[in-house]
Design a protein around this nucleic acid. Structure first.
Length: 551
RNA sequence: GGUGGGUUCGUAUAACGGUUAGUACUCAAGAUUUUCAUUCUUGCAAUAGGGGUUCGAUUCCCCUACCCACUACCA
Protein backbone atom coordinates (compact mmCIF):
# COMPACT_ATOMS: atom_id res chain seq x y z
CA UNK A 1 0.00 0.00 0.00
CA UNK A 2 1.26 3.41 -0.89
CA UNK A 3 2.18 5.52 2.06
CA UNK A 4 0.37 8.79 2.55
CA UNK A 5 2.60 11.76 1.89
CA UNK A 6 3.13 13.75 5.05
CA UNK A 7 5.84 16.38 5.27
CA UNK A 8 6.62 18.91 7.90
CA UNK A 9 8.24 22.28 8.28
CA UNK A 10 9.78 22.47 11.73
CA UNK A 11 10.99 25.96 12.58
CA UNK A 12 12.45 27.01 15.87
CA UNK A 13 10.82 30.16 17.24
CA UNK A 14 14.08 31.98 17.85
CA UNK A 15 13.38 34.95 15.60
CA UNK A 16 11.82 35.97 12.31
CA UNK A 17 11.74 33.43 9.53
CA UNK A 18 14.52 33.97 7.00
CA UNK A 19 13.60 33.84 3.30
CA UNK A 20 15.65 30.65 3.05
CA UNK A 21 13.34 29.18 5.65
CA UNK A 22 10.35 30.28 3.63
CA UNK A 23 11.79 28.46 0.63
CA UNK A 24 12.21 25.29 2.68
CA UNK A 25 8.61 25.58 3.84
CA UNK A 26 7.51 26.25 0.26
CA UNK A 27 9.23 23.18 -1.15
CA UNK A 28 7.68 21.07 1.59
CA UNK A 29 4.29 22.53 0.82
CA UNK A 30 4.63 22.02 -2.93
CA UNK A 31 5.73 18.45 -2.43
CA UNK A 32 2.83 17.69 -0.07
CA UNK A 33 0.20 19.23 -2.30
CA UNK A 34 1.55 17.58 -5.43
CA UNK A 35 1.22 14.22 -3.77
CA UNK A 36 -2.17 14.97 -2.29
CA UNK A 37 -0.66 14.76 1.16
CA UNK A 38 -0.43 16.79 4.34
CA UNK A 39 1.77 19.74 5.14
CA UNK A 40 2.47 20.03 8.82
CA UNK A 41 3.99 22.82 10.85
CA UNK A 42 5.70 21.70 14.00
CA UNK A 43 7.21 24.23 16.36
CA UNK A 44 10.56 23.04 17.70
CA UNK A 45 10.82 25.05 20.86
CA UNK A 46 12.93 22.78 23.01
CA UNK A 47 15.48 25.50 23.60
CA UNK A 48 13.97 27.78 26.20
CA UNK A 49 17.15 29.89 26.24
CA UNK A 50 16.68 31.10 22.71
CA UNK A 51 12.91 31.36 22.67
CA UNK A 52 11.74 34.69 21.29
CA UNK A 53 8.21 35.89 22.06
CA UNK A 54 6.24 36.59 18.91
CA UNK A 55 8.49 34.52 16.69
CA UNK A 56 6.01 31.69 16.33
CA UNK A 57 3.21 34.05 15.38
CA UNK A 58 5.54 35.76 12.92
CA UNK A 59 6.43 32.46 11.27
CA UNK A 60 2.80 31.43 10.85
CA UNK A 61 1.80 34.83 9.54
CA UNK A 62 4.68 34.91 7.10
CA UNK A 63 3.78 31.51 5.68
CA UNK A 64 0.19 32.56 5.60
CA UNK A 65 1.05 35.65 3.59
CA UNK A 66 2.86 33.42 1.12
CA UNK A 67 -0.15 31.15 0.77
CA UNK A 68 1.58 28.31 2.55
CA UNK A 69 -1.22 27.04 4.74
CA UNK A 70 -0.69 24.05 7.01
CA UNK A 71 -3.03 21.06 7.09
CA UNK A 72 -1.79 20.44 10.60
CA UNK A 73 -0.03 22.61 13.11
CA UNK A 74 -0.88 25.84 14.83
CA UNK A 75 -2.48 28.93 13.36
CA UNK A 76 -1.52 32.54 13.97
CA UNK A 77 -3.70 32.63 17.08
CA UNK A 78 -2.02 29.53 18.43
CA UNK A 79 -4.98 27.23 17.85
CA UNK A 80 -4.38 23.67 16.75
CA UNK A 81 -5.04 22.92 13.10
CA UNK A 82 -5.67 19.24 12.49
CA UNK A 83 -6.42 16.95 9.60
CA UNK A 84 -9.16 14.50 10.40
CA UNK A 85 -7.19 11.30 10.69
CA UNK A 86 -8.33 7.74 11.20
CA UNK A 87 -4.86 6.72 12.25
CA UNK A 88 -4.28 8.64 15.42
CA UNK A 89 -4.14 12.23 16.54
CA UNK A 90 -0.85 13.98 15.98
CA UNK A 91 -1.41 17.04 18.15
CA UNK A 92 0.03 18.90 19.91
CA UNK A 93 2.38 20.49 17.43
CA UNK A 94 4.66 22.35 19.79
CA UNK A 95 7.47 20.26 21.20
CA UNK A 96 7.28 22.11 24.50
CA UNK A 97 3.77 20.66 24.84
CA UNK A 98 4.99 17.18 23.97
CA UNK A 99 7.71 16.97 26.60
CA UNK A 100 6.08 14.09 28.45
CA UNK A 101 6.43 11.71 25.51
CA UNK A 102 10.16 11.98 24.88
CA UNK A 103 11.71 10.65 28.06
CA UNK A 104 10.44 7.10 27.67
CA UNK A 105 12.03 6.93 24.23
CA UNK A 106 15.35 8.12 25.58
CA UNK A 107 15.19 5.59 28.40
CA UNK A 108 14.30 2.86 25.92
CA UNK A 109 17.51 3.58 24.05
CA UNK A 110 19.52 3.27 27.27
CA UNK A 111 17.84 -0.01 28.18
CA UNK A 112 18.63 -1.45 24.77
CA UNK A 113 22.25 -0.36 24.91
CA UNK A 114 22.06 2.38 22.31
CA UNK A 115 22.55 5.20 24.77
CA UNK A 116 23.88 5.88 28.25
CA UNK A 117 23.68 8.33 31.10
CA UNK A 118 26.42 10.94 31.25
CA UNK A 119 27.21 13.03 34.30
CA UNK A 120 29.89 15.34 33.01
CA UNK A 121 29.03 18.95 33.66
CA UNK A 122 29.34 21.58 30.96
CA UNK A 123 32.29 22.99 32.91
CA UNK A 124 34.06 19.65 32.90
CA UNK A 125 33.45 19.23 29.21
CA UNK A 126 34.67 22.73 28.45
CA UNK A 127 37.80 22.09 30.48
CA UNK A 128 38.40 18.83 28.66
CA UNK A 129 38.01 20.57 25.33
CA UNK A 130 40.43 23.33 26.26
CA UNK A 131 42.90 20.72 27.40
CA UNK A 132 42.77 18.88 24.08
CA UNK A 133 42.91 22.12 22.16
CA UNK A 134 46.12 23.03 23.92
CA UNK A 135 47.55 19.86 22.42
CA UNK A 136 46.10 20.91 19.06
CA UNK A 137 43.62 18.07 19.10
CA UNK A 138 39.87 18.13 18.86
CA UNK A 139 37.87 16.65 21.63
CA UNK A 140 35.16 14.29 20.45
CA UNK A 141 32.90 12.54 22.90
CA UNK A 142 32.93 9.09 21.26
CA UNK A 143 34.09 5.52 21.71
CA UNK A 144 37.66 6.67 22.28
CA UNK A 145 36.99 9.21 25.01
CA UNK A 146 33.76 8.10 26.60
CA UNK A 147 35.48 5.43 28.72
CA UNK A 148 37.45 8.16 30.44
CA UNK A 149 34.39 10.26 31.23
CA UNK A 150 31.83 10.07 34.01
CA UNK A 151 28.91 8.04 32.72
CA UNK A 152 26.91 4.88 33.21
CA UNK A 153 29.44 3.00 31.11
CA UNK A 154 32.38 3.77 33.37
CA UNK A 155 30.78 4.12 36.81
CA UNK A 156 29.56 1.17 38.90
CA UNK A 157 25.84 0.71 38.52
CA UNK A 158 25.08 1.51 42.14
CA UNK A 159 26.95 4.76 41.79
CA UNK A 160 25.36 5.99 38.60
CA UNK A 161 21.91 4.94 39.78
CA UNK A 162 22.51 7.12 42.79
CA UNK A 163 23.76 9.97 40.65
CA UNK A 164 20.57 9.78 38.61
CA UNK A 165 18.75 10.81 41.78
CA UNK A 166 21.18 13.37 43.11
CA UNK A 167 23.02 14.85 40.13
CA UNK A 168 20.77 17.58 38.86
CA UNK A 169 21.84 17.87 35.27
CA UNK A 170 22.78 14.55 33.77
CA UNK A 171 22.16 13.80 30.12
CA UNK A 172 21.44 10.82 27.95
CA UNK A 173 23.97 10.41 25.17
CA UNK A 174 23.74 8.32 22.05
CA UNK A 175 26.36 5.58 21.96
CA UNK A 176 27.81 6.15 18.53
CA UNK A 177 28.99 2.78 17.20
CA UNK A 178 32.65 2.28 16.43
CA UNK A 179 33.91 2.13 12.85
CA UNK A 180 30.65 1.62 11.04
CA UNK A 181 29.87 3.00 7.63
CA UNK A 182 26.41 4.48 7.52
CA UNK A 183 24.95 4.28 4.02
CA UNK A 184 22.39 6.92 3.29
CA UNK A 185 20.30 8.09 0.38
CA UNK A 186 19.23 11.64 -0.20
CA UNK A 187 16.49 12.50 -2.68
CA UNK A 188 18.52 15.45 -3.94
CA UNK A 189 22.13 14.45 -3.34
CA UNK A 190 22.03 10.74 -3.99
CA UNK A 191 24.04 8.17 -2.08
CA UNK A 192 26.21 9.30 0.83
CA UNK A 193 28.41 7.26 3.15
CA UNK A 194 29.90 8.36 6.46
CA UNK A 195 32.07 6.49 8.94
CA UNK A 196 30.80 6.71 12.50
CA UNK A 197 34.29 7.31 13.88
CA UNK A 198 34.01 10.93 12.76
CA UNK A 199 30.78 11.38 14.70
CA UNK A 200 30.23 12.00 18.38
CA UNK A 201 27.94 10.81 21.16
CA UNK A 202 25.23 13.42 20.81
CA UNK A 203 23.19 14.47 23.79
CA UNK A 204 19.62 13.28 23.33
CA UNK A 205 18.04 14.28 26.60
CA UNK A 206 18.74 16.88 29.26
CA UNK A 207 17.70 16.28 32.83
CA UNK A 208 18.18 19.93 33.71
CA UNK A 209 15.33 21.00 31.37
CA UNK A 210 13.48 17.68 31.38
CA UNK A 211 13.56 18.11 27.63
CA UNK A 212 15.03 16.28 24.63
CA UNK A 213 17.47 17.92 22.25
CA UNK A 214 16.68 18.47 18.61
CA UNK A 215 17.86 15.08 17.41
CA UNK A 216 15.71 12.96 19.68
CA UNK A 217 12.62 15.15 19.53
CA UNK A 218 12.91 15.38 15.78
CA UNK A 219 13.12 11.64 15.17
CA UNK A 220 10.43 10.76 17.68
CA UNK A 221 8.04 13.37 16.34
CA UNK A 222 8.67 12.55 12.71
CA UNK A 223 7.93 8.94 13.55
CA UNK A 224 4.84 9.66 15.63
CA UNK A 225 3.53 12.14 13.08
CA UNK A 226 4.06 9.59 10.32
CA UNK A 227 6.26 11.86 8.26
CA UNK A 228 7.05 10.32 4.88
CA UNK A 229 9.65 12.78 3.59
CA UNK A 230 11.90 15.16 5.45
CA UNK A 231 12.80 18.14 3.31
CA UNK A 232 15.10 20.44 5.23
CA UNK A 233 18.16 22.66 4.98
CA UNK A 234 21.66 21.52 4.15
CA UNK A 235 22.86 22.33 7.65
CA UNK A 236 21.26 19.05 8.73
CA UNK A 237 23.16 16.85 6.33
CA UNK A 238 26.03 16.20 8.78
CA UNK A 239 23.60 14.86 11.36
CA UNK A 240 21.83 12.57 8.92
CA UNK A 241 23.94 9.53 9.94
CA UNK A 242 22.90 10.03 13.56
CA UNK A 243 19.28 10.22 12.49
CA UNK A 244 19.62 7.03 10.46
CA UNK A 245 21.17 5.29 13.44
CA UNK A 246 18.42 6.57 15.71
CA UNK A 247 15.71 5.14 13.47
CA UNK A 248 17.63 1.90 13.46
CA UNK A 249 18.00 1.86 17.24
CA UNK A 250 14.27 2.37 17.68
CA UNK A 251 13.56 -0.32 15.12
CA UNK A 252 11.70 2.14 12.94
CA UNK A 253 13.75 1.76 9.78
CA UNK A 254 10.78 0.41 7.82
CA UNK A 255 8.88 3.64 8.23
CA UNK A 256 11.87 5.95 8.23
CA UNK A 257 11.11 9.00 6.11
CA UNK A 258 13.08 9.67 2.97
CA UNK A 259 15.38 12.66 3.21
CA UNK A 260 16.04 15.63 0.96
CA UNK A 261 18.57 18.29 1.91
CA UNK A 262 18.23 21.70 0.31
CA UNK A 263 21.18 23.92 -0.41
CA UNK A 264 21.51 27.26 1.31
CA UNK A 265 20.74 30.73 -0.01
CA UNK A 266 23.94 32.68 -0.56
CA UNK A 267 24.54 36.42 -0.42
CA UNK A 268 24.31 38.31 -3.76
CA UNK A 269 27.98 39.24 -3.71
CA UNK A 270 31.10 38.00 -1.98
CA UNK A 271 31.20 34.88 0.12
CA UNK A 272 28.89 33.19 2.52
CA UNK A 273 25.26 32.62 3.19
CA UNK A 274 22.62 35.26 2.97
CA UNK A 275 22.23 37.19 6.19
CA UNK A 276 20.24 40.11 7.48
CA UNK A 277 23.32 42.34 7.19
CA UNK A 278 23.41 41.77 3.43
CA UNK A 279 19.90 43.08 3.15
CA UNK A 280 20.77 46.19 5.11
CA UNK A 281 23.96 46.70 3.15
CA UNK A 282 22.51 46.12 -0.32
CA UNK A 283 19.02 47.44 0.30
CA UNK A 284 16.65 44.49 0.13
CA UNK A 285 14.68 42.50 2.69
CA UNK A 286 15.76 39.06 3.86
CA UNK A 287 12.57 38.49 5.80
CA UNK A 288 9.08 37.98 4.39
CA UNK A 289 7.49 40.37 6.88
CA UNK A 290 8.75 43.33 8.82
CA UNK A 291 10.20 42.39 12.18
CA UNK A 292 11.00 44.51 15.20
CA UNK A 293 13.23 42.78 17.72
CA UNK A 294 13.28 43.33 21.46
CA UNK A 295 15.86 46.08 21.13
CA UNK A 296 13.51 47.93 18.79
CA UNK A 297 15.70 47.24 15.79
CA UNK A 298 13.60 47.07 12.63
CA UNK A 299 14.12 44.61 9.78
CA UNK A 300 12.26 45.33 6.60
CA UNK A 301 9.99 42.74 5.02
CA UNK A 302 9.02 41.85 1.47
CA UNK A 303 5.40 42.51 2.27
CA UNK A 304 6.05 45.99 3.62
CA UNK A 305 8.43 46.75 0.76
CA UNK A 306 5.55 46.29 -1.64
CA UNK A 307 6.19 42.83 -3.02
CA UNK A 308 3.26 40.70 -4.02
CA UNK A 309 3.29 37.36 -2.22
CA UNK A 310 2.89 35.57 -5.56
CA UNK A 311 6.01 37.29 -6.87
CA UNK A 312 7.97 36.53 -3.73
CA UNK A 313 6.94 32.89 -3.78
CA UNK A 314 7.61 32.54 -7.49
CA UNK A 315 11.06 34.08 -7.14
CA UNK A 316 11.89 31.88 -4.18
CA UNK A 317 10.71 28.73 -5.94
CA UNK A 318 13.04 29.42 -8.87
CA UNK A 319 16.00 29.87 -6.57
CA UNK A 320 17.34 26.35 -6.62
CA UNK A 321 14.70 24.68 -8.73
CA UNK A 322 13.56 24.89 -12.34
CA UNK A 323 10.93 23.08 -14.35
CA UNK A 324 13.42 21.87 -16.95
CA UNK A 325 12.25 24.31 -19.59
CA UNK A 326 12.24 28.08 -20.05
CA UNK A 327 9.14 28.85 -18.04
CA UNK A 328 9.74 31.29 -15.20
CA UNK A 329 6.31 32.52 -14.19
CA UNK A 330 4.30 30.18 -12.02
CA UNK A 331 1.25 30.50 -9.86
CA UNK A 332 1.18 28.42 -6.70
CA UNK A 333 -0.97 25.83 -8.49
CA UNK A 334 1.46 25.82 -11.38
CA UNK A 335 4.32 25.24 -8.98
CA UNK A 336 2.48 22.41 -7.27
CA UNK A 337 2.05 20.73 -10.61
CA UNK A 338 5.54 21.30 -11.95
CA UNK A 339 7.64 20.86 -8.82
CA UNK A 340 9.95 17.92 -8.36
CA UNK A 341 12.72 17.23 -5.87
CA UNK A 342 14.74 15.63 -8.67
CA UNK A 343 15.14 19.04 -10.26
CA UNK A 344 16.24 20.81 -7.11
CA UNK A 345 19.77 22.14 -7.53
CA UNK A 346 22.48 20.76 -5.26
CA UNK A 347 24.67 23.85 -5.11
CA UNK A 348 23.97 26.97 -3.10
CA UNK A 349 21.92 29.62 -4.84
CA UNK A 350 23.00 33.22 -4.77
CA UNK A 351 20.10 35.52 -4.19
CA UNK A 352 19.61 38.19 -6.84
CA UNK A 353 17.58 41.24 -5.72
CA UNK A 354 17.23 42.47 -9.31
CA UNK A 355 15.45 39.29 -10.26
CA UNK A 356 13.15 39.69 -7.30
CA UNK A 357 12.20 43.15 -8.56
CA UNK A 358 11.66 41.79 -12.05
CA UNK A 359 9.24 39.21 -10.71
CA UNK A 360 7.28 41.91 -8.94
CA UNK A 361 7.11 43.96 -12.10
CA UNK A 362 5.77 40.97 -13.99
CA UNK A 363 3.09 40.31 -11.39
CA UNK A 364 2.18 43.98 -11.13
CA UNK A 365 1.14 44.08 -14.75
CA UNK A 366 -1.02 41.01 -14.43
CA UNK A 367 -3.12 42.73 -11.77
CA UNK A 368 -6.39 44.34 -12.79
CA UNK A 369 -6.77 48.11 -12.76
CA UNK A 370 -9.30 47.80 -9.97
CA UNK A 371 -7.03 45.73 -7.79
CA UNK A 372 -4.15 48.13 -8.31
CA UNK A 373 -6.40 51.10 -7.64
CA UNK A 374 -7.34 49.60 -4.29
CA UNK A 375 -3.68 49.26 -3.46
CA UNK A 376 -2.78 52.72 -4.72
CA UNK A 377 -5.43 54.60 -2.76
CA UNK A 378 -3.67 54.19 0.62
CA UNK A 379 -0.48 55.45 -1.00
CA UNK A 380 -2.32 58.52 -2.26
CA UNK A 381 -3.82 59.09 1.14
CA UNK A 382 -0.41 58.91 2.74
CA UNK A 383 0.52 61.82 0.47
CA UNK A 384 -2.44 63.85 1.62
CA UNK A 385 -4.76 63.03 -1.25
CA UNK A 386 -8.40 62.16 -0.73
CA UNK A 387 -10.11 59.59 -2.90
CA UNK A 388 -13.88 59.35 -3.04
CA UNK A 389 -15.88 56.54 -4.53
CA UNK A 390 -18.16 58.71 -6.71
CA UNK A 391 -18.61 62.31 -7.90
CA UNK A 392 -21.58 62.77 -5.57
CA UNK A 393 -19.48 61.82 -2.58
CA UNK A 394 -17.00 64.44 -3.70
CA UNK A 395 -19.61 67.13 -3.59
CA UNK A 396 -20.51 66.04 -0.08
CA UNK A 397 -16.85 66.38 0.74
CA UNK A 398 -17.00 69.94 -0.54
CA UNK A 399 -15.12 69.39 -3.75
CA UNK A 400 -15.44 71.11 -7.07
CA UNK A 401 -14.61 68.38 -9.48
CA UNK A 402 -13.44 68.69 -13.05
CA UNK A 403 -15.42 66.60 -15.51
CA UNK A 404 -12.63 64.06 -15.19
CA UNK A 405 -13.12 63.81 -11.44
CA UNK A 406 -10.39 65.92 -9.89
CA UNK A 407 -10.24 68.83 -7.51
CA UNK A 408 -6.64 70.00 -7.53
CA UNK A 409 -7.20 72.75 -5.02
CA UNK A 410 -8.51 70.44 -2.30
CA UNK A 411 -6.74 67.33 -3.53
CA UNK A 412 -9.92 65.32 -3.87
CA UNK A 413 -10.23 62.75 -6.63
CA UNK A 414 -12.74 60.16 -7.65
CA UNK A 415 -11.82 56.51 -7.71
CA UNK A 416 -12.52 56.51 -11.43
CA UNK A 417 -9.95 59.27 -11.92
CA UNK A 418 -7.36 57.19 -10.06
CA UNK A 419 -8.22 54.02 -11.94
CA UNK A 420 -7.76 55.83 -15.25
CA UNK A 421 -4.29 56.84 -14.26
CA UNK A 422 -3.41 53.41 -12.93
CA UNK A 423 -4.26 51.81 -16.26
CA UNK A 424 -1.93 54.22 -18.01
CA UNK A 425 1.06 53.87 -15.69
CA UNK A 426 1.05 50.33 -14.44
CA UNK A 427 3.53 49.14 -17.06
CA UNK A 428 6.06 51.67 -15.84
CA UNK A 429 6.21 50.47 -12.24
CA UNK A 430 7.77 47.70 -10.21
CA UNK A 431 5.83 48.45 -7.04
CA UNK A 432 2.47 50.09 -6.42
CA UNK A 433 4.30 52.71 -4.39
CA UNK A 434 6.13 53.68 -7.59
CA UNK A 435 2.83 54.97 -8.96
CA UNK A 436 3.19 58.08 -6.85
CA UNK A 437 6.68 58.85 -8.10
CA UNK A 438 5.58 58.25 -11.65
CA UNK A 439 2.32 60.17 -11.56
CA UNK A 440 2.26 62.59 -8.64
CA UNK A 441 1.90 65.46 -11.12
CA UNK A 442 -1.53 64.12 -12.01
CA UNK A 443 -2.60 64.83 -8.44
CA UNK A 444 -0.56 67.86 -7.47
CA UNK A 445 0.17 70.85 -9.71
CA UNK A 446 3.89 71.40 -10.18
CA UNK A 447 5.25 74.05 -7.87
CA UNK A 448 8.76 74.03 -9.28
CA UNK A 449 10.56 72.90 -12.40
CA UNK A 450 13.57 70.62 -12.80
CA UNK A 451 16.51 72.89 -13.53
CA UNK A 452 18.26 70.55 -15.92
CA UNK A 453 15.16 70.11 -18.02
CA UNK A 454 14.48 73.83 -18.02
CA UNK A 455 18.01 74.45 -19.25
CA UNK A 456 17.56 71.89 -21.94
CA UNK A 457 14.10 72.66 -23.28
CA UNK A 458 12.85 76.01 -22.05
CA UNK A 459 14.07 78.22 -24.88
CA UNK A 460 12.10 81.10 -26.23
CA UNK A 461 11.99 79.80 -29.79
CA UNK A 462 10.38 76.64 -28.43
CA UNK A 463 8.13 77.75 -25.62
CA UNK A 464 6.63 80.48 -27.71
CA UNK A 465 5.48 77.76 -30.08
CA UNK A 466 4.35 75.61 -27.18
CA UNK A 467 2.11 78.42 -25.92
CA UNK A 468 0.57 78.72 -29.34
CA UNK A 469 -0.05 74.99 -29.42
CA UNK A 470 -1.59 75.21 -25.96
CA UNK A 471 -3.78 78.02 -27.10
CA UNK A 472 -4.86 75.93 -30.04
CA UNK A 473 -5.85 73.07 -27.79
CA UNK A 474 -7.74 75.44 -25.49
CA UNK A 475 -9.75 76.73 -28.39
CA UNK A 476 -10.51 73.82 -30.61
CA UNK A 477 -13.17 72.49 -28.31
CA UNK A 478 -14.60 75.94 -27.67
CA UNK A 479 -18.03 74.68 -28.63
CA UNK A 480 -18.05 72.13 -25.83
CA UNK A 481 -18.83 74.19 -22.77
CA UNK A 482 -18.85 71.29 -20.32
CA UNK A 483 -15.29 70.31 -21.11
CA UNK A 484 -16.37 66.71 -20.86
CA UNK A 485 -15.37 66.05 -24.42
CA UNK A 486 -11.77 66.90 -23.67
CA UNK A 487 -10.49 63.42 -24.38
CA UNK A 488 -7.15 62.16 -25.50
CA UNK A 489 -8.55 61.07 -28.84
CA UNK A 490 -10.00 64.51 -29.46
CA UNK A 491 -6.81 66.30 -28.51
CA UNK A 492 -4.02 64.17 -29.88
CA UNK A 493 -4.63 64.14 -33.62
CA UNK A 494 -5.55 67.79 -34.08
CA UNK A 495 -2.71 68.98 -31.86
CA UNK A 496 -0.12 67.00 -33.76
CA UNK A 497 -1.53 68.10 -37.07
CA UNK A 498 -1.43 71.69 -35.91
CA UNK A 499 2.22 71.51 -34.87
CA UNK A 500 3.24 69.55 -37.91
CA UNK A 501 1.40 71.72 -40.40
CA UNK A 502 3.17 74.74 -38.99
CA UNK A 503 6.46 72.97 -39.56
CA UNK A 504 7.41 73.24 -35.86
CA UNK A 505 9.80 70.80 -34.18
CA UNK A 506 7.47 68.27 -32.50
CA UNK A 507 9.87 67.13 -29.79
CA UNK A 508 10.81 70.61 -28.64
CA UNK A 509 7.27 71.89 -28.54
CA UNK A 510 6.00 68.82 -26.73
CA UNK A 511 8.76 68.92 -24.19
CA UNK A 512 8.07 72.53 -23.34
CA UNK A 513 4.47 71.57 -22.74
CA UNK A 514 5.51 68.58 -20.68
CA UNK A 515 7.82 70.71 -18.59
CA UNK A 516 5.00 73.14 -17.95
CA UNK A 517 2.53 70.39 -17.11
CA UNK A 518 4.66 68.05 -15.05
CA UNK A 519 7.56 70.14 -13.84
CA UNK A 520 10.04 67.87 -15.57
CA UNK A 521 10.75 66.27 -18.91
CA UNK A 522 9.45 62.84 -18.25
CA UNK A 523 6.00 61.42 -18.10
CA UNK A 524 3.01 60.40 -20.11
CA UNK A 525 2.05 61.64 -23.55
CA UNK A 526 0.91 65.26 -23.60
CA UNK A 527 -2.55 64.36 -24.85
CA UNK A 528 -2.89 61.86 -22.02
CA UNK A 529 -1.91 64.43 -19.45
CA UNK A 530 -4.21 67.12 -20.79
CA UNK A 531 -7.15 64.77 -21.01
CA UNK A 532 -6.60 63.57 -17.46
CA UNK A 533 -6.14 66.89 -15.69
CA UNK A 534 -8.79 68.62 -17.78
CA UNK A 535 -9.04 71.98 -19.44
CA UNK A 536 -8.98 74.28 -16.45
CA UNK A 537 -6.02 72.70 -14.78
CA UNK A 538 -4.25 72.60 -18.12
CA UNK A 539 -4.73 76.33 -18.51
CA UNK A 540 -3.70 76.99 -14.93
CA UNK A 541 -0.45 75.05 -15.31
CA UNK A 542 0.46 76.80 -18.54
CA UNK A 543 -0.12 80.15 -16.85
CA UNK A 544 1.93 79.15 -13.83
CA UNK A 545 4.84 78.02 -16.01
CA UNK A 546 4.71 81.30 -17.89
CA UNK A 547 4.86 83.23 -14.66
CA UNK A 548 7.44 81.05 -12.99
CA UNK A 549 9.85 80.46 -15.86
CA UNK A 550 9.34 83.77 -17.57
CA UNK A 551 7.99 83.96 -21.03
C1' G B 1 42.22 20.94 11.71
C1' G B 2 38.48 16.86 10.81
C1' U B 3 33.97 15.15 8.22
C1' G B 4 30.32 15.87 4.58
C1' G B 5 28.39 18.64 0.47
C1' G B 6 29.19 21.72 -3.79
C1' U B 7 31.63 24.22 -8.55
C1' U B 8 28.29 26.09 -16.56
C1' C B 9 28.24 33.69 -18.72
C1' G B 10 28.34 38.90 -13.12
C1' U B 11 23.56 36.19 -11.17
C1' A B 12 19.66 32.18 -11.60
C1' U B 13 19.82 28.11 -14.63
C1' A B 14 19.29 24.51 -19.50
C1' A B 15 21.91 20.90 -22.31
C1' C B 16 20.02 10.80 -23.48
C1' G B 17 28.38 11.11 -23.64
C1' G B 18 27.81 14.05 -29.90
C1' U B 19 24.34 21.54 -29.64
C1' U B 20 27.37 27.31 -33.33
C1' A B 21 26.89 25.43 -24.96
C1' G B 22 20.32 27.58 -24.84
C1' U B 23 17.07 30.88 -21.68
C1' A B 24 16.01 34.73 -18.03
C1' C B 25 17.83 38.91 -14.91
C1' U B 26 21.54 42.73 -15.05
C1' C B 27 24.48 45.76 -18.38
C1' A B 28 25.44 48.05 -23.39
C1' A B 29 23.85 49.50 -28.32
C1' G B 30 20.03 50.29 -31.88
C1' A B 31 14.79 50.79 -33.47
C1' U B 32 9.94 52.82 -32.16
C1' U B 33 7.74 57.06 -29.41
C1' U B 34 6.57 64.17 -28.44
C1' U B 35 10.19 63.10 -23.26
C1' C B 36 10.74 59.19 -19.73
C1' A B 37 9.21 54.45 -19.27
C1' U B 38 7.29 50.40 -22.01
C1' U B 39 7.93 47.36 -26.29
C1' C B 40 11.05 45.20 -30.09
C1' U B 41 15.97 43.91 -32.10
C1' U B 42 21.01 43.10 -31.37
C1' G B 43 25.27 42.59 -28.46
C1' C B 44 28.72 41.46 -24.18
C1' A B 45 29.52 37.22 -21.29
C1' A B 46 30.44 30.57 -18.89
C1' U B 47 31.71 24.67 -18.56
C1' A B 48 37.51 26.31 -11.89
C1' G B 49 42.56 23.82 -13.07
C1' G B 50 45.04 19.19 -14.14
C1' G B 51 44.93 14.13 -15.24
C1' G B 52 42.31 9.85 -16.91
C1' U B 53 38.01 6.55 -19.36
C1' U B 54 36.04 7.19 -24.44
C1' C B 55 36.05 7.69 -31.53
C1' G B 56 34.06 11.85 -28.70
C1' A B 57 33.47 14.62 -21.87
C1' U B 58 29.86 20.42 -19.37
C1' U B 59 28.13 15.34 -18.58
C1' C B 60 31.67 9.42 -15.95
C1' C B 61 36.31 8.62 -12.54
C1' C B 62 40.67 10.65 -9.78
C1' C B 63 43.68 14.74 -7.91
C1' U B 64 44.23 19.98 -6.83
C1' A B 65 42.03 24.69 -5.95
C1' C B 66 38.11 27.37 -4.21
C1' C B 67 33.19 27.87 -1.81
C1' C B 68 29.54 26.14 1.82
C1' A B 69 27.80 23.46 6.00
C1' C B 70 28.73 20.75 10.35
C1' U B 71 32.17 19.88 14.19
C1' A B 72 27.33 22.61 21.59
C1' C B 73 23.71 19.83 27.33
C1' C B 74 21.29 25.39 19.66
C1' A B 75 18.07 24.20 16.34
Amino acid sequence: MERRTRVRFAPSPTGPLHMGGVRTALYNYLYAKQHGGDFIIRIEDTDSQRFVPGAEKYIIEALNWCGIIPDEGVDAEGNVVETPSERHPHAPYRQSQRRSIYRQYAEELVQNGFAYYAFDTSEELAARRAEMEAEKKTFIYNHITRMSMRNSLTLPESEWRQLLETHGDWTIRFKMPEDRTVKMDDLIRGHIEVNTDTLDDKVLWKKADELPTYHLANIVDDHLMEISEVIRGEEWLPSLPLHYLLYEAFGWQDTMPRFAHLSLLLKPDGKGKLSKRDGDRLGFPVFPLKWVNQEGEVSRGYREDGYFPEAFVNMLAMLGWNPGDDRELFTMDGLIEAFSLERVIKSGARFNPDKARWYNKEYLRTKSDDELTDLFIPVLESHGMQVVSCPKCAITAGAELTPQGADFRNHIFTREYVRNIVSLIKERAVFVADFWDIASYLFVSPSSFAEKDVAKFWKEENYSLAFQAAGFVMNFDAGDKTGAGFTKEQIEGPMEDFIRSNGWPMGKVMNCLRLALTGASSGLGIADIISIIGKNEFAARIDFAKKELGA
